[in-house]
């Protein structure tokens, strides 16, 4: 760890010209930059996906978990009485923060997307809905169902868990998949830089021999390669990330129109996260080149 710190310090403060001792290699250098840019581009999307999936999971989990619905399905003349009875039970149920019957106009608004705004609900046997907001501790759904069944035969409790759980699961999986992709992309950057560094070290065996002859330490020689590959990976990843962020920024925003869907775009401080990718890329390249150079130089005379 101490040695790594020393190398990082040398990287920052050391001979800025150190990498001049290794000849420029146009084509492979461009490949490294390009690969780093492509990886960073993909990593930004993986990151956006993960964050969006995380938001979905949280939103569905939180908002839906806190609310339940009771439907009163009863003949018209009993509906009001049963609704009263159900509200009475809810008032005495531990864990229920708030319960109220939806008004006719609210129910009309809920159904309007399907039946149109002109429909008179009185002509249809539409069940009365009661909105139940839970306290954080939640309530005993099974117990409530039993009490309702005993006193309000037309009441059906729906705590949304039936369809909520798989959605939250799916969103969480998606988030995991996104982070896994990001990790794989990072590993690919490491593999790519290792290969490129090995190739560069092999191609420059003659240069390394000359440097050894004039008294260069392995550390100095390694630094020349480390500096070069770290800067390439950083530069490439920076370009890739910025392009990807621009693309993400111009994605159509779905969050306003579609209730609990969410846009893929970053939100708030999450916009700073993609800037970590070039830094991570540079760190990965630094470590990978350092390891490759350490291994290769030991084999050379």
């Amino acid at each position: 760890m101490k040695l790594v710190r020393a190398d990082v310090k040398r990287f920052v403060l050391g001979d800025r010209q150190a990498d001049r001792v290794v000849p420029r290699s146009g084509f492979t250098a461009q490949l490294t930059v390009f690969a780093a840019a492509a990886m960073a581009f993909l990593a930004v999307f993986a990151m956006a996906l993960s964050l969006a999936a995380g938001r979905l999971a949280t939103r569905w989990g939180d908002e839906l978990a806190q609310s339940s619905t009771i439907r009163i399905v009863a003949p018209l003349d009993q509906r009001a009485a049963q609704t009263e009875a159900a509200l009475g039970i809810l008032e005495t149920t531990a864990g229920v923060a708030f319960a109220r019957a939806l008004s006719a106009s609210e129910q009309q608004a809920l159904l309007a997307p399907w039946f149109g705004a002109e429909l008179d609900l009185q002509t249809l046997p539409v069940p009365q809905l009661i909105e139940v907001i839970e306290e954080d501790s939640g309530f005993d759904a099974a117990g409530l169902r039993l009490r309702l069944a005993a006193e309000v035969p037309g009441a059906i409790l729906d705590d949304h868990s039936r369809w909520r759980a798989p959605l939250v699961d799916a969103a969480n999986r998606l988030r995991l998949l996104g982070w896994l992709s990001a990790v794989l992309l990072g590993a690919s950057v490491a593999a790519m830089v290792t290969l490129a560094a090995h190739a560069a070290l092999a191609a420059n065996a003659q240069v390394i021999a000359v440097l050894r002859l004039v008294g260069a330490t392995d550390r100095y020689i390694a630094q020349a390669f480390i500096r070069r590959f770290t800067l390439r990976a950083f530069g490439g990843a920076l370009v890739g990330s910025v392009v990807a962020m621009a693309v993400v920024a111009f994605l159509p925003d779905a969050s306003d129109t579609a209730g609990f869907l969410t846009g893929l775009s970053f939100q708030g401080w999450h916009w700073f996260l993609p800037f970590l990718i070039p830094l991570l890329c540079a760190a990965v390249a630094f470590v990978a080149t350092r390891a490759a150079a350490g291994r290769t130089l030991k084999r050379l005379a």
Partner: peptide, 24 residues
């Protein structure tokens, strides 16, 4: 290896094929 590298600074070596860094 690095100790030897440091010692080389006290020794001047001229090779028969005297290789250089051709880009400098």
């Amino acid at each position: 290896r690095d100790d030897i590298a440091v010692l080389r600074r006290r020794m001047g070596v001229v090779h028969q094929d005297c290789s250089f860094l051709d880009h400098l």
